[in-house]
Write a protein that binds this DNA or RNA. Structure first.
Ligand SMILES: [Mn+2]
Ligand SMILES: [Mn+2]
Ligand SMILES: [Mn+2]
Ligand SMILES: [Mn+2]
Lengths: 220, 220
DNA sequence: CAAAAAAGTTTGACTACTCAAACTTTAATG
DNA sequence: CATTAAAGTTTGAGTAGTCAAACTTTTTTG
């Protein structure tokens, strides 16, 4: 079994590879993500490479192998099932569960994970709208686009918040926004790089492009 | 925060001190309990001593300090709340939950522990009848005696099974015995070091003194 | 009580993980 | 394209935890 540290590196690598156009991660970002020095990250990459969890050439990009990818998906599955449990059953705050799941994700056995998943009714997404991979590692991401790309008068439904930052999640929730909530885009102002949206029975809220880029929606 | 390893040592020390007449633990038993060598245990004791979690003189007994005691009770609280959750909510087998809780007990934050405890209705004992310390570290052990000490025709109620061994728990459960179950002692045979007991609507079961010593009961 | 057994300690070595700091390679930019 | 800046690597050192094996102290027991 991969150690907690290895699982954290693999999960970070997965995310970095996703968001990089080349599909490869770099040591500097990885180190930053995990709050370790570049040297530490380099030596871990060497170990992961030896264990065939990543493919990496010196001074070049890092990519997960199939084995590494499966571990990343397993950890994400545990993380998201736990978040769902914490919010739905234990009524923890939406904004707090990420940190909690960050530790618990390493302590769940396959048996407990499955029971928990079953108890929750096999949820397909977590409280933030992040898709939950199934036990085999299949992820089905719902089609969506950033709210920032929407036009005035569009009617959309929030499907996902792509930021685990507590303050941001707090702000989003306080504005009445959550996956499943319907919005109307009232106006778009490219000059001020912001847009005004309104939930079903809520006040109009102004969002910067940056904030709106982290809210994924589908047209209804 | 104490590491997972330290928590396991402290918890083992707590149990060993309980069951020793002198109230002190020894390195050999500790090492055996944790499946490490005596040398490893010795060096850990030195570290725990430096951290003021135990009091220990070379070649003499080991005792927990107040600080160490509180950690032991915290870990036991987490362990038992988790076991209760696993059995009551996730429907895991009585005999399996100990191993699972052994890992999870190190990953629960105070916040999650409290929510879980609240969700379960602040249980006072775990599925094996072990008392759950409260958040302040108070334990209230129900008055009880070993089934092995009972006389023929006594009517008793099982309050606790003092053995986490899977095979033993399996046997006990298969015999229909659990905390809360009422028993009648049908006969006691000192010669064969065994006794025959019967649950309300169950077959008579023969138990060795050794097995009966691990089943705590109260007279009804 | 002397010899053997058990309990406890020390030493040297190893893995996993980490940092600081010096160093090398690659990328960016005037 | 020469010079910085950024990215990546190496080295030396340190902590946490572990083992094997030699050693010392205490306890048992014939
Ligand atoms: Mn984590
Ligand atoms: Mn999430
Ligand atoms: Mn444990
Ligand atoms: Mn128990």
């Amino acid at each position: 079994m991969a150690t907690e540290t290895v699982e954290n590196y693999i999960k970070a690598l997965y995310a970095l590879c996703r968001e990089s156009p080349s599909g490869e991660a770099g040591v500097a970002r990885l180190a930053q993500e995990l709050s370790v020095t570049k040297g530490t990250a380099t030596s871990m990459i060497k170990r992961l490479s030896l264990a065939r969890l990543v493919k990496a050439e010196p001074y070049s990009g890092i990519a997960l192998t199939a084995k590494g990818n499966k571990i990343a998906l397993d950890v994400m599955r545990r993380h998201r099932v736990i978040e769902t449990f914490l919010v739905r059953i234990l009524k923890l705050d939406w904004a707090d569960v990420h940190e909690e799941a960050e530790r618990l994700e390493h302590a769940l056995s396959p048996r407990i994970l499955d029971r928990l998943d079953h108890f929750l009714g096999r949820p397909s997404t977590d409280p933030h709208g992040d898709p939950i991979p199934d036990a085999a590692g299949n992820v089905s991401e719902a089609r969506s686009k950033p709210l920032a790309k929407c036009r005035a008068r569009e009617r959309v439904c929030i499907v996902r918040i792509k930021d685990q930052n507590r303050a941001f999640l707090k702000f989003v929730a306080d504005s009445g926004f959550m996956p499943g909530v319907n919005l109307v885009v009232q106006s778009v102002s490219p000059q001020s790089a912001s847009l005004v949206v309104r939930a079903a029975r809520g006040e109009p809220v102004t969002l910067s492009q940056i904030a709106a880029a982290k809210i994924l929606v589908k047209v209804i």
